[in-house]
Amino acid sequence: EYSEEELKTHISKGTLGKFTVPMLKEACRAYGLKSGLKKQELLEALTKHFQD
């Protein structure tokens, strides 16, 4: 599980793409985000969540 700060850091540095799909799905579930099946959809959901 990833902390909010850790995820925000990866988003701001542009390194969230280094996460694997299972890692991204886990992060989306942890924050109650609707997650797609594609890596890009997962990245967009997390990025949008933490930028709002």
Rank of each mutant, 00 (worst) to 15 (best):
G14K: 11
R29Y: 07
L37Q: 09
K18A: 12
H49D: 00
E44Y: 11
H49I: 03
E26M: 07
E6Y: 09
L7T: 09
E41R: 03
A27M: 14
H10S: 09
S3R: 07
L46N: 01
Y31F: 13
L43C: 07
S3T: 10
L24H: 00
L7D: 01
L37D: 14
K39R: 10
K38H: 10
K39T: 02
V21K: 04
E4V: 10
P22K: 15
E5C: 07
H10V: 08
S12Q: 15
K38E: 14
H10W: 05
A45H: 03
T15S: 06
S3Q: 07
Y31N: 10
K18T: 15
A45G: 07
E26Y: 05
K48S: 11
P22Y: 08
K18I: 07
F19M: 11
D52G: 15
H10I: 08
V21M: 09
E44R: 08
E44F: 09
F19L: 14
E26F: 05
K18E: 15
K48Q: 15
L7H: 02
Q51Y: 06
E1K: 15
L7G: 00
E5V: 10
A45F: 02
K48E: 14
E26T: 03
E44A: 10
C28W: 01
Y2T: 08
K48M: 13
K38Q: 12
H10N: 05
T15Q: 09
S12M: 14
G32I: 01
K39V: 03
G17M: 10
A45C: 11
E5H: 09
K39G: 03
E44T: 10
K25L: 08
T15Y: 03
L24T: 00
F50H: 01
L37M: 13
Q51G: 13
T47L: 11
M23P: 02
T15V: 02
L16G: 04
M23T: 14
F19S: 01
E5K: 10
K13L: 09
K34R: 11
G17F: 07
Q51F: 07
S35I: 13
E41Y: 06
M23G: 05
F19D: 03
M23W: 10
L33M: 02
S3E: 04
R29K: 14
L16K: 03
E4M: 09
S3K: 09
G17C: 14
I11L: 10
Q40H: 14
Y31A: 09
E4Q: 07
Y2L: 11
F50V: 08
K13E: 14
T15P: 04
C28L: 07
V21D: 01
K38V: 09
H10C: 09
S35R: 06
K34N: 13
T9F: 14
G14R: 06
E26P: 00
G14M: 00
I11D: 00
R29P: 04
L7I: 01
C28E: 00
K13A: 12
Y2K: 08
D52A: 06
K39E: 02
Y2V: 08
M23D: 07
L24P: 02
F19K: 02
R29L: 09
L16P: 00
K48T: 11
P22D: 15
Y31D: 02
Q40I: 12
D52L: 04
K39M: 00
G32Q: 04
L37N: 07
K34D: 13
G14S: 07
Y2A: 04
Y31H: 15
F50N: 00
L33Q: 02
L46E: 01
L7A: 08
E4G: 05
G17A: 12
L24M: 03
L43N: 05
T15H: 02
Q51T: 07
C28F: 07
G32L: 04
Y2Q: 04
Q51M: 08
E26W: 05
R29A: 14
K25R: 13
K13N: 15
A27G: 00
P22A: 14
L37W: 12
E6N: 15
C28G: 05
T47F: 05
K8N: 05
G17R: 11
E26A: 12
D52M: 07
T47W: 03
E1T: 02
L24C: 00
I11V: 10
K18S: 15
C28H: 04
K25Q: 14
A27C: 03
E41P: 01
A30S: 11
A30M: 13
K13P: 04
A30L: 14
L33Y: 01
S3N: 11
S12T: 13
G14C: 03
K48W: 07
L37T: 14
L24A: 01
K34H: 11
Y2C: 05
G17H: 08
G17E: 15
E5G: 09
E26Q: 15
A30D: 06
E4F: 11
L33H: 01
K39H: 12
S12N: 12
G17N: 14
K34I: 08
E26K: 08
H49P: 04
S35C: 14
A45S: 10
T15D: 06
T9K: 13
E41C: 07
Y2N: 05
M23F: 06
S35H: 08
S12W: 08
G14H: 01
L24E: 01
L37A: 14
E44D: 14
M23E: 15
I11K: 01
L33R: 00
S3G: 05
V21A: 06
K39I: 01
Q40W: 10
S3M: 11
K8H: 05
K18Y: 05
